[in-house]
Design a protein around this nucleic acid. Structure first.
Lengths: 339, 339
DNA sequence: AACGTATTTTAGATCGATCTAAATTCTGTC
DNA sequence: GACAGAATTTAGATCGATCTAAAATACGTT
């Protein structure tokens, strides 16, 4: 290298002012061109547009936000992005926002409320136009009230914080649970167990309640709920304990596919055949469900669709902050495979 | 409800000015308090801090960026978030940025360069401080040169655009490939195939080149490279075609675990035993690899670690824009299971 | 050519923070 | 109590856009 101290060029992006100078018009005119205003004459517009290219202009959205109050961004908070369900959901959201020209801030809360609140504070500082929230386990209802007071549009997904009538998009877990139980009962099962999530969320509680009602409706006793699990291996342990109990079930409905796959693995380890010795049904229909051996029977919850609907609802809410809250439930589909 | 037209309160967030009024000091002083300046007297600081709470102040980072030129955000571009590898990588990045107090814009390019460029333009308008990029297939080298000219710090991950000496973090695919081939050769295999990705990326080409060199090194002919695949089912088709060829291989190394799982599924469908009739090795060690039946032998590429290193490197680069480019390769681990 | 109307363009204030340079207040000393 | 020097506080300009209200220009009639 030649110059030892080569001073950083410190080239800042070109601004409106430079474009205006290049095109020989005022800043206000350039601004009008940028916003596609019909006010400006065709010839002027062309001159400005080529000036924009020659000076390499970059729109400064932060500066614009100062006046317009909108940033073109939204925040997405999920418990964990490594869960395939949330990954697909994120893809659905991204699809909608991309065509709308908006950007997404992503954060994973790891189900820790304080991390979630930290993130919310930060995106508020950035001036997000709205938030899609799958609340961390243990989030306080106070949080949602706070957000409402701040007038930040929020759409909740999958999990809803109790006691507040807010926008909400989710698979219809209740309907999915009914479908699974009806199917098992029709197949002759009389002793059915539920393996719930170890997490105490609205989505988990809803499934337990529905499970119990469905069994009662079919006249099948109080119903057996195993201890909760939150990973494959925990699910394997739980099903192991359950199988040696006094009256083991002939079918088990699991909170999600990961747990169901854990159950299957344990059955095979014990030389049992999933689908014959114990029927297993999961929730979600993650890619692995179709390709596992044996293939998993499951309730598909269509995460991409949930994401798309959530994004669309948020956009509507941003446009109409005082409209009535909506509740959108995506109908799940029972997918019969081998277990 | 009582008031039919309840006019939207249009309550904007409180600003520095209001805090200043409440605390009886100037805006400048409040600003100093916010930035933890040692200049301000303890008593004043306290007064300001309580004023901040009582008026419900929200820092406006957009306004600050106008003066400071930094936004506290970075952009992350991945081909697809639904790939478990990228999901874990994202989690690693998120972990680092959370403790650093920064926010992440997430976008998925779906391997479409125009979508990728659209996203880059948008985050530039927002003034991102840096970008972590896993370039879409077919990205032009021009893009990276452009970014450099714009002086946006960029760290590439996994895939690197040719011809430019830039910051790069990736699993050491070459080393992983050697480890897998050495293992197969030591196990007695003489006819080894590679099933590459259908995508033409640097990561794919590197694996093919290394595979060929490794075989040559072991004196095992030119080496057999099957047509590429990019999904489980494509992998199944490809391996089907390969098995009926004149001299079928006794082992196959796959571009990633998803392809390897597709291969295994096809073998089972044909009544063959993976690991005996055909050895199969994947790349990545996604969660499913450990739990599939039979469990998949694979080269673990430690996505979380890659994410963490990439985030740290980007932060270093933002702090020192003109430092020498770094290349960080994460050593993979061969995990022997049943295939 | 003069006039009224319609079309374009612009000057200057503004959004909410930071920065600079200067003003103010506080200390300790004599 | 006056003064130098340190510690604290502040007025006002500034970042890059948008907005308002007014100015400049063009156009069609008579």
């Amino acid at each position: 290298m030649n110059s030892e101290l080569s001073p950083v060029a410190e080239r800042r992006d070109a601004t409106l002012k430079e474009v205006a100078a290049e095109a020989g018009v005022s800043r206000a005119t350039v601004s009008l061109v940028l916003r596609q205003s019909p006010l400006v004459a065709a010839a002027t517009r062309e001159r400005v547009e080529s000036a924009i290219l020659t000076v390499g202009y970059v729109y400064n959205r932060g500066a614009a936000r100062l006046r317009t109050g909108t940033s073109g961004t939204i925040g997405l908070i999920v418990p964990e992005i490594t869960n395939p369900f949330y990954a697909e959901l994120t893809a659905g959201i991204d699809e909608v926002l991309d065509v709308e020209g908006r950007l997404t801030y992503l954060a994973t809360s790891n189900d820790r409320p304080e991390r979630q609140e930290r993130f919310i504070r930060r995106i508020r500082e950035q001036g997000v136009d709205g938030i899609i929230l799958s609340a961390a386990e243990g989030s306080s209802p106070w949080l949602l009230r706070q957000l409402r007071e701040w007038r930040v549009p929020v759409v909740q997904i999958l999990r809803s914080i109790a006691g507040i009538d807010a926008d909400f998009v989710s698979p219809d877990f209740s309907r999915g649970t009914w479908a699974a139980i009806d199917h098992l009962v029709a197949a002759g099962h009389r002793h059915i167990a539920l393996m719930p999530s170890a997490k105490n969320t609205s989505a988990a509680r809803e499934r337990i309640d529905t499970f119990l009602s469905a069994l009662r409706h079919h006249g099948l006793g109080p119903g057996m709920v195993t201890p909760g699990a939150s990973s494959r291996s925990e699910a394997a342990d739980r099903i192991g304990e359950t199988l040696i109990s006094a009256s083991p079930p002939s079918a088990v409905l699991c909170h999600n596919d990961l747990l169901a796959l854990g159950v299957i693995a344990e059955l095979r380890r014990r030389g049992m055949t999933p689908g014959r010795d114990l029927s297993v049904i999961g929730f979600d229909d993650i890619p692995e469900a179709a390709s596992s051996v044996p293939a998993l029977t499951t309730v598909a919850t269509l995460p991409v669709e949930v994401g798309i609907q959530a994004a669309r609802l948020l956009l509507r809410r941003i446009a109409m902050p005082d409209g009535a809250p909506e509740r959108i439930l995506i109908a799940p589909r029972l997918i019969l495979r081998e277990t």
